[in-house]
Design a protein around this nucleic acid. Structure first.
Lengths: 180, 180
DNA sequence: GTCTATACACCGATAGAC
DNA sequence: GTCTATCGGTGTATAGAC
């Protein structure tokens, strides 16, 4: 089994149970590998596994969500494309956000800088498209923050209320909120 | 030391480290009581402590945030009053939301029903004020959900970006977003 | 009520055989 | 590369003296 395959089996566990709620026993079961085998792939242990998971997801995010903002088209087209990519990325609201998960508790302490960096990259990417649409930079930055906040809030609501439609509704309204 | 005093010392620990990230050793240190003494107050152990913390916060929430919607005044006044109460309740964005914390991982499994109930009470309370302002019930419910989503998203952004102004900005914009 | 001492399971991590 | 066996530490929880 390749390391990438292992990582993709680790991700759902961290996503569901959080960093501290995930044990090596769970990761062992999810991958079918013994604990010691996991240490062969990840000498830094649980922290290394979480880092690898985060990097894997960050790459996937870049290739889908961020990429959707860079392909050709008008700002409106780009934003709509991003929303479609986000619906897939968060599995229509059923996925927790990995960044949000890794910003809490002990994980927050361990990974704060990386998490913050990733979030800022996303804000920056949306912001750039808004500026391209003629919106002033400060306003663009604020609106991008607000949009990501709405997405994160919607994910929290879905998690608690079990109503994925909330996430899709927010996503559908995002384009005109961003561009107006 | 009264049980209420003990509970108020447990809360910040759960809030910062999450349910699974919090150990009895931490709670012991925070309260100044030995582990066995904590079991005197909370025979159900850590779960009982988290429940007590949640109940305590729920009561405080009712007495401040929900109460602000029930005191006399126009719908606009009530919403503005709620936003002020929220700024205090979440310490201007520096506090994590206890419901959000308790909706993750093992805590999510243990407390899901109670958390969901609390969130719905809040949505209902805002919704009622919007209906009073002449907004149609389905729209009122949706807008209340959205508002709470924005608040939660803002708290997540503040946590990661270390910029409490984001939370206050969202709060300032809430009244006209809700009433329009 | 609060303590010390402790039970026992599980944690993350490692050694070393194969 | 994967395993079994095991380490030291910590987790939650309890017993029982005071």
């Amino acid at each position: 089994m390749s390391k990438e395959q292992v990582i993709s089996k680790l991700i759902p566990v961290f996503r569901q149970y959080g960093y501290e709620g995930t044990s090596l026993a769970m990761l062992s079961k999810a991958t079918g590998l013994g604990k010691a085998s996991l240490y062969h792939y990840f000498p830094k242990g649980k922290q290394g596994m979480a880092e690898a998971a985060m990097n894997h997801i960050a790459l996937h995010f870049e290739e889908t969500v961020l990429q959707s903002l860079q392909e050709p088209g008008s700002p409106e087209v780009k934003i709509v494309r991003m929303c479609k990519a986000l619906a897939n990325f968060y599995d229509r609201g059923k996925n927790n956000c990995f960044l949000a998960i890794m910003s809490l508790g002990e994980a927050g302490r361990l990974f704060h800088d990386r998490v913050k960096q990733r979030l800022e990259i996303w804000i920056e990417a949306i912001s750039k498209v808004l500026i391209e649409a003629g919106i002033k930079p400060e306003i663009a930055w604020r609106r991008s923050q607000d949009a990501i906040g709405e997405i994160q809030g919607a994910l929290m609501l879905v998690r608690i209320l079990n109503e994925p439609e909330i996430f899709m509704r927010i996503l559908n309204n995002l384009p005109w909120k961003l561009i107006q």
